[in-house]
Design a protein around this nucleic acid. Structure first.
Lengths: 358, 358
DNA sequence: TTGTAGGCGTTATCAT
DNA sequence: ATGATAACGCCTACAA
C-alpha cells in the first residue's frame, strides 16, 4: 500500500518528523502543546502520524518525564461483588483522567500484599490504592508502604489507616454504617444484636466493630461478635452455632453480602423467620442485595460516591493540593431482611423489589 | 543513616555500580544473568542494591528491550460475578509469570472498546485479552484489533472469534454449555425450552444460540429467544412477558446468573413453581449460584479451567509456539432450579446446598 | 515558530 | 569474569 513498515519496528517520532519534513521537536510539540504550532504544520504532522500509524512510546515518555499514568489498584478479592463494583468505578475515573489501572488481586493473602507492594516501585506507578478488608498493618506491610511513600508515591487506603505516616485515607464509611445499622435495629426493638465480621483482625472488622460497639454503648447492651471469613459456608456455620447457643439474638449486622446470604441460610435451616424473629442488615450495598430472596436490607455508602471520594483524595495527593469534598454518608435501604424503623407503616413489605432508600 | 539519597531521585543502576565498585554492566548482569558473575561480586552488588533501596526502572528496561511485562485485560463488566472471577484467575496467572495486568472496563460500551483498543499500542503492552459478552465485530473494533495484530501484539478473545485474521481465541465453551443445558432439560421432559440471552447481537448470545438451537434441532422443537440485557430487572420483565404470552414454556436456559435471578423472580411473581412447572439452568458457574434460594443449577466450564486455558493460549502466542491442551468441557451442577436428568433417584433435593456436579 | 543537542536508566555488543 | 560504549524513543532547555 503506502510502502510503510520498510523499517522493522513501529514508527517513531523521527519517522513522523522525516515524513512531515520537520524536526522531532515539532512533532513532539504537536502532541503536547498543539497551540504552539502553526495550523499548517500541525496538519502535516498529524497527517504523517496517521499515515505511519504512529503511536508514541509510553516507556520512552515515562523514562523522560518520570510519570507513568498508571495507578495500582490492590484489591483483596476482585471476585467479591463490592470490590468488583469499586474496581469498575475506579477504572472509569482513571480512564477519564487518561490514566490506566494496574490490577493486583491479593486473594486475601497478606503475604501477597507485601510482595506486590515491594514490586511496585520498579513497576513504575504514579500512585497506589489499597482496597482490602484484610489486615494491612503487619510490620512488613507497613514498611513496604512506608517505602513507597518515601519514594514519593502516594498510597491510599480505603479502609481505615495503615498506620503509616504520610499514607492517605479515603474512608469507606463502614464505621458509621455499622453504627447506624446497629442503632436502627435497636430502635426497631431488637433486644440482642450480634455482629458478623469477615476476619476479626482485619481493618474492615475494626471499623465495623467500632461503629457497632459505639451504638451498643448507648443502650448498654453487650457485644457479640462472630467471624464468617468472608465466606458463605463459614458464615452459615458461625451463625448456626451462634443462634443455637444464644437464642436471644434477634438481629444481625453483617459485613458483606455473601456472608449475609450464609446467615440467612442458617436462619432458614433453623426455621427462624426473617425478619420477624431475626432481622438482618448488611453493610454493603450492591445490586445483588435486591435480587436475592429475601432481599437484603443494607446500610452503606454508595459505591459510586466512595469511588469518587477515593479519586478526589488521589487527585489531591498527585497534585499536592488538599483533598476537597466530604466523605459520603451511609444510606439505608430497607428491603426484606429489615423493613425499617419501627413505624407501623413500615412493617409492610417494601414498596418495590429494589427497596426504598432513606 | 547511611547518607543515601543525597542525590535527588531514586537510585539508579549507576549508583549501585559506584557503591559496589563495579561497572553498570556487572550490576545489570547480577540482575539478569547472576550465574555469569563471581559469587563475591554478586554479594557486593546485591548488598549495595539493598543498601540503596535500588529498584530497576521498568520504563528504561522496556525502552531497551521492547517488552513491558504487561497484559491488557479488557472486560465487559468487571462487576458481573463471572468477570470478577475470571479477572482473579488471570491476575493470579499473570503474577505467577512475573507479569502485571492492566484492567480496562467497558461497562458494556462498544464505543469504549474501540477507544481502549486504539490507545493500547502507545500504552505498551505485550498482549491483550478481550473478555466481553458484548459485540466485538463492528468494523471499527475489527480494524482496531487488526491494527494491534499487525503490530505484533497478540490479541485473544474469550467468546468466539472477532472475525480478525491472526487474532487468537480461547473459547469459554458457552456453545457446548448451552447445548448440554438444553439437552438435559429436554431429556428430563421439558416440552418447551426458551433461551434468555443478555444481548441478542453479542458474541455471547451467538454462542448460546448456536448450542441451544443445535440441541433443539435434534427433537425438532421451535426456538424461543428473549433478551434480558444482562440485567436483573430487564430479565424479570422479559421473562414475565414470555411466561404470560407462552404459558407452554416450561424450561429456561439463561446466560448469566443475575439474569437467572430476574427470571426466578418473574416466576415467583406469577406463582409458577420452580423447578416443577419451570426448570432453569444458567450457563455460568459462580459461588453465588449455590448461595441464593432457590439455588441455581448450572452448566458451565469451570472459571479456573477457563482462565488456565486463556493463559495457555496467551503463552503460546507470546512464545510463538502452538497452544497446548484442550479447552475444558462443561460440567453440570444440579441444584434447586433443575434437579437433574429425569431419573427418579434424582428428583430428591440435591445432596447438599452446593449441589452435586457430574 | 521551529530546530539542535543532551540525557532519562537500561541492556547488548564488543573488547579486555 | 568484567568494562566501555552505543543505542532504545522521547522531552526540553536553549539557540536560531
Amino acid at each position: 500500500m503506502t510502502g510503510r513498515d520498510a523499517t522493522a519496528g513501529a514508527a517513531t517520532i523521527l519517522d513522523v518528523a522525516r515524513l512531515a519534513g520537520v524536526s522531532r521537536t515539532t512533532v513532539s510539540r504537536v502532541l503536547n502543546e498543539p497551540e504552539r504550532v502553526t495550523a499548517a504544520t500541525l496538519d502535516r504532522v498529524n497527517d504523517a502520524a496517521a499515515r505511519l500509524n504512529y503511536h508514541p512510546s509510553a516507556a520512552a515518555r515515562t523514562l523522560r518525564i518520570g510519570r507513568t499514568g498508571t495507578i495500582a489498584l490492590i484489591v483483596g478479592d476482585i471476585a467479591q461483588p463490592f470490590h468488583g463494583a469499586l474496581a469498575q468505578v475506579i477504572a472509569a475515573a482513571a480512564e477519564a483522567r487518561g490514566m490506566t489501572v494496574a490490577l493486583h488481586d491479593l486473594a486475601h493473602s497478606q503475604g501477597r500484599l507485601v510482595r506486590v507492594l515491594e514490586k511496585l516501585p520498579s513497576q513504575g506507578i504514579d500512585a497506589a490504592i489499597i482496597a482490602t478488608a484484610d489486615p494491612i498493618d503487619s510490620p512488613e506491610a507497613q514498611s513496604a508502604i512506608a517505602a513507597l511513600v518515601r519514594q514519593g508515591i502516594p498510597v491510599l487506603t480505603t479502609m481505615g489507616t495503615s498506620g503509616v505516616e504520610g499514607a492517605h485515607v479515603a474512608d469507606s464509611g463502614h464505621l458509621d454504617s455499622a453504627a447506624r445499622a446497629t442503632a436502627e435495629l435497636i430502635d426497631s426493638g431488637a433486644r440482642s444484636v450480634a455482629l458478623l465480621v469477615g476476619r476479626a483482625d482485619g481493618t474492615h472488622a475494626d471499623k465495623l466493630r467500632l461503629g457497632y460497639e459505639r451504638a451498643l454503648r448507648r443502650v448498654g447492651a453487650p457485644a457479640i461478635e462472630i467471624d464468617g471469613g468472608y465466606d458463605f459456608e463459614l458464615s452459615r456455620q458461625a451463625v448456626t452455632a451462634l443462634l443455637r447457643e444464644r437464642p436471644a439474638v434477634d438481629a444481625l449486622v453483617v459485613g458483606t453480602l455473601p456472608m449475609a446470604l450464609g446467615a440467612l441460610r442458617a436462619a432458614e435451616d433453623l426455621g427462624i423467620p426473617v425478619p420477624r424473629a431475626l432481622a438482618l442488615i448488611a453493610c454493603e450495598e450492591v445490586p445483588l442485595a435486591a435480587q436475592v430472596r429475601p432481599a437484603v436490607s443494607t446500610v452503606c455508602i454508595d459505591v459510586g460516591a466512595n469511588g469518587a471520594q477515593i479519586m478526589r483524595v488521589l487527585d489531591a495527593a498527585l497534585t499536592g493540593d488538599a483533598p476537597t469534598g466530604d466523605p459520603a454518608t451511609p444510606v439505608a435501604v430497607y428491603r426484606e431482611t429489615f423493613v425499617g424503623p419501627a413505624h407501623p407503616k413500615h412493617s409492610a413489605a417494601a414498596s418495590e423489589s429494589t427497596g426504598r432508600s432513606v
